[in-house]
Write a protein that binds this DNA or RNA. Structure first.
Length: 124
DNA sequence: CCTTTGACTCACT
DNA sequence: CAGTGAGCCAAAG
């Protein structure tokens, strides 16, 4: 279970156990179907919202994992900033729509409604 | 080892 | 209100 860590002694290697990436994946895996979260929200949950870039990095690494719904992680505007990493430009949207999320123009509709905040939902 | 980069965000101009 | 710069930290070159 991911907890707030102030010390980011990660040293994560692909295929190995790490803290930062592992926590990110852990959180993403818990995003309910039909909901989305943001890089910033995850970063904030992990202790600092300014580490959002690391979350993106974790997502990039998460592509090798089978059950990490990276499509449910978007930027703070609800835009599908990571769609370019899903093989085809429409893949991410299709996955979201399969979750019941309405996507239009690379942007999640009703974003504020379906937004899933780990800091709240996984309140510690 | 030092430099660059990245699926981000916030603050200031 | 849009554009720009800075901060963040780890991985890859």
């Amino acid at each position: 279970m991911a907890k707030i860590r102030k010390t980011f002694t990660v040293r994560l290697m692909p295929g190995k156990t790490g803290s930062f990436f592992n926590d990110v994946w852990d959180v993403v895996r818990q995003v309910p179907r039909g909901r989305v979260t943001t890089y910033g929200a995850i970063a904030q949950y992990l202790g600092t919202r300014m580490s959002a870039r690391m979350v993106g990095w974790a997502m990039n690494a998460a592509h090798v994992l089978p059950d990490v719904p990276a499509q449910r992680v978007v930027n703070r505007n609800g835009m599908l900033s990571g769609k370019a990493h899903f093989g085809t430009p429409t893949r991410m949207q299709e996955l979201l729509e399969a979750d019941g999320v309405v996507v239009k123009n690379n942007q999640v509709q009703n974003f504020k409604i379906i937004f899933w905040n780990p800091t709240v939902e996984l309140a510690l």
